[in-house]
Design a binder for these strands. Structure first.
Length: 870
RNA sequence: GCGAAAGUGGCGGAACUGGUAGACGCGCUGGAUUUAGGUUCCAGUGGGCAACCCCCGUGAGGGUUCGAGUCCCUCCUUUCGCACCA
């Protein structure tokens, strides 16, 4: 054995061993308990970033741990390979997205291999491969047959200069990112999936998903957004015909206070009214141009214009005006709301601004009617209370009023109780090139005709280069020219592609059977599914996870798979941050400097007081810690780090620096510390073996151990108990590493070269190596063999703590007086309560504290603490 | 705006079920070895006090309890998500 730890040699050897023995290729084995550990697959953006490294290290730790626990563990890897960045890169470099993507995949795969992840590469897939996306298309057609997929118009961002649809991301302050042109809204036909059909089940099942983080479940529940209320019809006449304006409200009890209605700019009533009103038409246009993002709508100024149209209040018969409001969402409910300024804050401000009447019809609990203000909103106006000024409903509370009003409306045919969802159907059409083609043929005679199954997949040409002016498929006759499968006439192939969330909605099931070209999934998927542990970023808490849950339900309902919940346990890992340093270069421009190029000045305590650029010594501005990004020049490259420190040091650092769900602050010093820890471990094993070959390492005689030896051994096994709990139950790794560090600190001080002492040290070192194996697999692989084992550590069972070693004769008890720590006493571990109590009260320090004061109460917590109340 | 989290030394964090606040690491200070630097080893490191067996201390304020970082209420701050980025 070498005295120095050579991480490069150690990692090369371990990876070669795993490669040669095909250690991570797994097969279905009904005799063994399976465990499917999956990290969200990466978008092949070019290089791995540290967020990937953190994510995949967590997955690898659990994979290796569960494998040592005896499970048949699957950990696959693939590529979420369709998407916008490839098109952007193509425009910039003139390279087809396919080539850019495949090159990135090759590079990133090499990076993953350097890090030593226990991945079954036989199952690798990329969503841009026809063998994969064929099944997106196939299932889409099945959904179409079942009415789960359907066509309707949807609103998109339109860049009038480039003549192209823009993603929200490509719209900056209402303008196209490349052209700077004012973005318009366009309504175009699109395909939608009826996820709302599953809303109730998606919501209900959340209650049982106890191994998902509470906050993710809450976010999904809010997103699905079930609300119970009443749909109310406001009749009106238009050109002699009777129409009804439908609104949804959860506050039907305030209906008697409705003084106006407001509709979205896209609402048919608004469209009709704008026809003869140029000012209104202009306003409607302006609203449509505005943002569709809920966050922006919520904070922008509420504005409106009257349509000139009046509707009839369904209960009072009053005429009330209809306005167009820029805050009304066409996509929620009916695209129209009733305005109750007395009891809704938004309506109140709207009414004050435009001089609309305000009626108070609810008396909030504890408020007096006389204090109602028509100029100043008070939060209690929005509270539930008792109806007033509401005619026959006066005196009813919320529920009674809603029931009575709903019943009356129903009797008139002008409304009923209704459940409303915030969740909307999933629009999957994208007017983009680099995605999965939607398998339809647009025939002038037959309409949208599905591509016959035997012609699937509709293959996306891989040689096109988008130029920013629309989807290049529209300029590629060899792609779009086709015949109608129904009538045989000349037709045009659909050039829209699918949302990339479709690709990621079921890839985890395909990993079970990537080589099956006859079916989307087969029996093997039922062996591996559901994913036992899914790990990924919190940013996917809603969309990706919800779409996957929906997609599994569709597959299950078609009999393709047995499970409906794809992910049993979910771990949402935090982001990786780094310092940002900048300097203003004048003219409002800012230059960012990489943290490696900046020297930080410290005060006597080591607290930073300033920073300078190394190259010129002049100060730079510290802008705090943010996620690593190119634009802030604060990224670090995994490949550089592996070369400098080794994969194991990086893995240890990433697991040690923060708990999995928290953000992690990058620091080179921290990685250096992890490297130091591994070097120490290496040297401890080396020094131990220097004193005698491992083969002759003696076994200890438990009875003959000295108290110091017994304590050393107890600590080793107690650490094993803790580390096992951290990996297996708590899923936190920082505390597991800290516990091993403590154990190593104790072992360093354990200076005993007797036969028994060496035996205890040998056992402790073996335990340390086994406990660290999931996190630092390469060095542990090497040390395990150095310690005299012929088998590979990856296949060695996880160690069991020796219960006898854990037994303690004497324990320390904390003694408090009035809740403040005053003394420690050592007593026999099996002392009874009265014995503990006596020992505590007899302690000289405690006697001093309670001298002359009557002892009112003594609380004894067995094995832990005594609190004396005086 | 709505929804979801989080606030503990110079820094990252630990304290898991209400029971010793600051484990472990980074940084910093002093020392030893080497001495070109780095590496390695030892000691110290929340604040106050000359010092302690003392006092204070977990974003702010209040409450429950023998006992609160942990539970409850009010407030402040920060971060994340909001449907075409993935």
């Amino acid at each position: 054995m070498q005295d120095r730890y050579d991480h490069a040699a150690v990692e090369r050897a371990a990876q070669a061993f795993w490669g040669e023995t095909r250690a991570f290729a797994v097969a279905e084995d009904p005799a063994r308990r399976k465990y499917y550990c999956l990290c969200m697959f990466p978008y092949p953006s070019g290089r791995l970033h540290m967020g990937h490294v953190r994510n995949y290290t967590m997955g690898d730790v659990l994979t290796r741990y569960m494998r040592m626990q005896g499970y048949n563990v699957l950990q696959p890897m693939g590529w979420d390979a369709f998407g916008l960045p490839a098109e952007n890169a193509a425009m910039k470099n003139g390279v087809p997205p396919a080539k850019w993507t495949y090159d990135n995949i090759a590079y990133m795969k090499g990076q993953l291999q350097q890090l030593g992840f226990a991945l079954d590469w036989n199952r690798e897939l990329a969503t841009c491969q026809p063998e994969y996306y064929k099944w997106n298309q196939w299932l889409f057609l099945r959904m179409l047959e079942r009415g789960i997929a359907y066509k309707k118009t949807g609103v998109v961002n339109w860049d009038p200069v480039d003549q192209t649809v823009l993603a929200n991301e490509q719209v900056i302050d209402g303008r196209g990112w490349r052209t700077g042109a004012l973005v318009e809204k366009r309504e175009i036909p699109m395909y939608y999936l009826r996820i709302t059909e599953y809303a109730q089940d998606l919501l209900d099942e959340l209650q049982h998903m106890t191994e998902w983080p509470e906050r993710v479940r809450a976010m999904q529940a809010n997103w699905i957004g079930r609300s119970e209320g009443v749909r109310i019809g406001f009749p009106y006449e238009l050109e002699g015909e009777r129409h009804v304006l439908s609104v949804f409200t959860t506050r039907a009890d305030t209906l008697m206070g409705a003084t106006f209605c407001a509709v979205a700019a896209e609402h048919p009533l608004a469209t009709h009214a704008a026809r003869n009103d140029p000012a209104l038409a202009a306003f409607v246009e302006e609203c449509k141009r505005g943002t569709a993002q809920e966050a922006e709508i919520a904070v922008m100024e509420k504005r409106g214009m009257p349509t000139g149209q009046f509707v009839t209040h369904p209960l009072s018969g009053e005429k009330i005006p209809v306005w167009v409001g820029n805050y009304v969402l066409m996509t929620y409910g009916e695209g129209a709301v009733m305005g109750v300024p007395g009891h809704d804050e938004r309506d109140f401000h709207f009414a004050v601004k435009y001089g609309l009447p305000i009626k108070f019809v609810i008396r909030p609990p504890g408020a007096s009617v006389e204090t109602f203000s028509k100029t100043q909103w008070q939060p209690e106006y929005g509270a539930y209370g008792v109806c007033i000024h509401s005619g026959k409903y006066d005196g009813l509370d919320y529920q009674a009023a809603v029931d009575a009003i709903a019943a009356d409306l129903q009797a008139k045919g002008l409304g009923e109780k209704q459940v409303q969802w915030r969740l909307r159907d999933w629009g999957i059409s994208r007017q983009r090139y680099w995605g999965c083609p939607i398998p339809l043929i647009l025939c002038p005679a037959c309409g949208d005709v599905p591509v016959p199954d035997e012609e699937l997949p509709v293959v996306l040409p891989e040689n096109l280069v988008p130029d920013g002016t629309g989807n290049p498929l529209n300029k590629t006759p060899s792609f779009y020219e086709c015949k109608c499968p129904k009538c045989g006439g000349k037709a045009r192939r659909e050039t829209d592609t699918m949302d990339t969330f479709v690709d990621s909605a079921w890839y985890f099931a395909r990993f079970a059977c990537v080589d099956d070209y006859q079916a989307m999934v087969d029996e093997r998927a039922n062996y591996w599914m559901a994913v036992d542990q899914y790990i990924g970023g919190i940013e996917h808490a809603i969309l990706h996870l919800l779409y996957s849950r929906f997609w599994m339900r569709v597959m299950r309902d078609m009999g393709l798979i047995e499970v409906k919940e794809p992910f049993v346990r979910l771990l949402t890992q935090g982001m990786v941050l780094n310092n940002i340093y900048s300097r203003s270069t004048g003219e409002g421009r800012v230059e960012y400097f990489h943290p490696d190029d900046v020297a930080v000045q410290l005060d006597a305590n080591g607290a930073p007081v300033g920073a300078t650029l190394r190259s010129d010594g002049k100060p730079v501005q510290w802008e705090g810690m943010r996620t690593m990004s190119k634009s802030k020049n604060n990224g670090v490259d995994p490949t550089d780090l592996v070369a400098r420190f080794g994969a194991d040091s990086i893995r240890v650092f990433m697991m040690f620096k923060a708990p999995p769900e928290d953000t992690l602050e990058w620091s080179d010093d921290g990685v250096e510390g992890s490297a130091r820890f591994l070097r120490r471990l290496w040297r401890m094993v080396w020094e131990h073996l220097e004193k005698g070959p491992s083969a002759t390492a003696p076994r200890q005689d438990l009875v003959a151990l000295s108290p110091v030896q017994r304590e050393m051994r107890r600590m080793a096994h107690a650490t094993l108990v803790k580390v096992t709990d951290d990996y297996g139950r708590r899923r936190v790794f920082n505390t597991a590493i800290a516990a091993v560090m403590e154990l190593m600190n104790a072992l360093q001080k354990f200076d005993d070269d007797s036969q028994q002492g060496r035996a205890v040290r040998h056992e402790t070192l073996e335990l340390i190596v086994q406990m660290l194996a999931p996190i630092a697999p390469h060095i542990c692989h090497a040390l395990w063999n150095e310690l005299g084992h012929k088998d590979a550590l990856i296949d060695h069972p996880w160690p069991q703590p020796d219960q006898q070693a854990l037994v303690q004769d004497r324990i320390q008890i904390v003694v408090q007086v009035n809740g403040k720590l005053r003394a420690h006493v050592e007593i026999s571990a099996n002392a009874g309560e009265s014995e503990v109590r006596t020992a505590a009260l007899d302690d000289p320090t405690i006697r001093k504290w309670i001298e002359g004061k009557p002892v009112r109460k003594v609380i004894v917590v067995p094995g832990k603490l005594v609190n004396v109340v005086v």
